[in-house]
Design a protein around this nucleic acid. Structure first.
Length: 501
RNA sequence: UCCCCGAUAGCUCAAUGGUAGAGCGAGCGGCUGUUAACCGCUAGGCUGUAGGUUCGAGUCCUACUCGGGGAGCCA
């Protein structure tokens, strides 16, 4: 009942007899042959069972095996191009560990709602399996970067007595009769820790009660936050740049094939090398109001409209194809392509409808307001590498951000916009190290000073310039894997109105 | 919170206001070094809920519930 090797290691056992322990991914039985595709958590392997084999008393059982039955299977390894993964197993023995009947997730298409209701089973599907492996590697790459660059991991609490950021987006929890909040960030706690260790980071779940139902939002997500003592804004940005380069490189090294299988355009990731672009907020505003942004959106409008026309024609053609098709599977295929084309078309139509609005927002962008989602997309798409946008107006940013000493209307902060319009992945800043300035900001924001006494202490005893940033893990996974929706990047997504399973 | 779209078999989708269908999946049989195989048969439905219009509603109208997409907000 125990595996002697794994599917990923079959290449080292060509010609030998091995035992695999796994689950049936697909079964194609016939009169004299059974093709069993088995997965074992390391890959897929086709196992061939012939009725002619003298000892094949398990042939009829094998024929009836259905999707996701658990099996321990012995056989001889053969290199074979016709097989997934290049190796197949000529079966010599089969133990059925547990049957599986009416497995809900079939190889055919399913809707999003259905799949997420079956998240606990959906994990087993190849694509979800790959995404979780990529996420795993990314987590390791993140920790490795900090661990090998002199950072100490200091975990911060999840129950927090007061808000780190906007108070409307907090989850309130009853804590022995008193209200506490689920942490939105560990930053303030980390600032304290960096005064002890110099360079620190935390990596854990954070919670935002934002009522947003978009492809970019989760109510529970993972964030890594480094914090560095004696660092200026530029030095913090340097770290962010090295950090992003190192995780991208690691993903390309370890998962090139997986990324390609997921449909990711690798060449876009290969461009992510130092130096990234650094643009001040005021320059970004000029960019938005300038001719390049306008041209980009106009070209977008043209391309999208052209694609819509193309899709409409495609739908007509497919309908004709479906009617004249002789084979049922051809009709089926046409029908499914129609569904896909309609979906793409209606999505594009919505985007097209939004473009004039986005153009207006960009063209009339007012200095002093925050960059909107569409503005970020425009700036990101005007560059072929990530962009750091720095020095935002203080009025739209958090109280702890360090005032620009040369221009007191601005703060020393930065957002890193990912490539290809994926939007903000990192937000960071230099922190206000001056006691009086910080205290003034706390009272301006009408925050309860008593709650922040410990935080003010950091400015009473040996305060130094320092700063850090936060990177959203799931947004990074979706950026690097090229996934259109963030919900696939976390094992159990928590979104507005979605907490099952 | 606002705008748009949707809800029909276990799943994915059809169905001029006029008898609810197909494919997949499931079950049975046949057949093939198969790659979403294929062929035949069988089972499977109070068309999201509640009202309304109509001789007649899956289809039209209203409200609600749930889901998807977008806006705002954000990592």
């Amino acid at each position: 009942m125990k595996a002697s090797t794994t599917i990923s290691n079959l290449k080292h056992h060509d010609g030998e007899e091995v035992t695999l322990a796994g689950w049936v991914y697909k079964n194609r039985p016939s009169g004299k042959l059974v093709f069993l595709v088995v997965r074992d958590g390391t890959g897929l392997c086709q196992c061939v069972i012939e009725k002619g084999d003298a000892s094949a008393d398990y042939f009829d059982d094998a024929k009836r095996l259905s999707q996701e039955a658990s099996v321990v299977i012995r056989g001889t390894v053969n290199a074979d191009e016709r097989s997934v993964g290049g190796y197949e197993l000529r079966v010599t023995g089969l133990d059925i560990v547990h049957a599986s009947t009416d497995y809900p997730i079939t190889p055919k298409s399913h809707g999003v709602e259905f799949l997420f209701k079956h998240r606990h089973l959906w994990f087993r599907s190849q694509r979800q399996f790959l995404i979780m492996r990529l996420r795993h590697t990314l987590i390791d790459a993140i920790r490795s970067f900090f661990n090998t660059n002199g950072f100490t991991c200091i975990d911060t609490p999840i129950f927090a007595p007061s808000a780190g950021e906007g108070a409307q987006t907090l989850f309130e929890v009853d804590y022995f009769g008193d209200p506490v909040y689920l942490a939105q960030t560990g930053q303030l706690y980390l600032e304290a820790a960096c005064m002890s260790h110099g360079k620190v980071y935390c990596f854990g779940p954070t919670f935002r009660a934002e009522k947003s139902k978009t492809r970019r939002h989760l109510t529970e997500f993972w964030m890594v936050e480094p914090e560095i003592a004696y660092a200026s804004l530029d030095e913090v940005i340097d770290v962010a740049e090295d950090f992003v380069c190192s995780i991208v490189e690691r993903m390309l090294n370890d998962h090139r094939d997986d990324l390609i299988e997921l449909g990711r355009d690798i060449t876009e990731l290969e461009k992510i090398k130092k130096p990234f672009y650094r643009v001040r907020y005021h320059e970004a505003a000029e960019l938005l109001r300038g001719p390049k942004a306008k041209a980009l959106l106009e070209r977008d409008l043209e391309e999208k409209n052209a694609r819509i026309t193309e899709l409409d024609q495609l739908i007509i053609d497919l309908e004709a194809q479906g009617e004249t098709a002789k084979k049922q599977w051809q009709k089926d295929k046409a029908a499914q392509e129609i569904v896909a084309a309609r979906e793409e078309s209606s999505e594009l139509k919505e985007q097209v409808a939004n473009i004039p609005h986005h153009m207006e927002l960009a063209a009339n962008f007012k200095i002093g307001s925050d960059l909107g989602g569409s503005d970020e997309t425009i700036i990101s798409r005007l560059h072929d590498k990530p962009v750091f946008v720095t020095h935002y107006p203080a009025s739209v940013k958090a109280f702890y951000m360090r005032r620009d000493r040369e221009n007191p209307d601005l703060v020393e902060n930065f957002d890193m916009l990912a490539t290809e319009g994926f939007g903000e992945v990192i937000g960071g800043s230099a922190r206000e190290e001056d006691y009086d300035r910080l205290l003034k900001r706390i009272s301006e924001e009408k925050l309860p000073q008593a709650d922040y006494e410990w935080y003010l202490d950091l400015r009473r005893y040996g305060s130094v310039p320092h700063g850090g940033f936060g990177l959203g893990l799931e947004r990074t996974v979706s950026w690097l894997c090229g996934l259109r929706h963030i919900r696939e990047t976390i094992p159990y997504p928590r979104m507005m109105g979605a907490v099952y399973p």
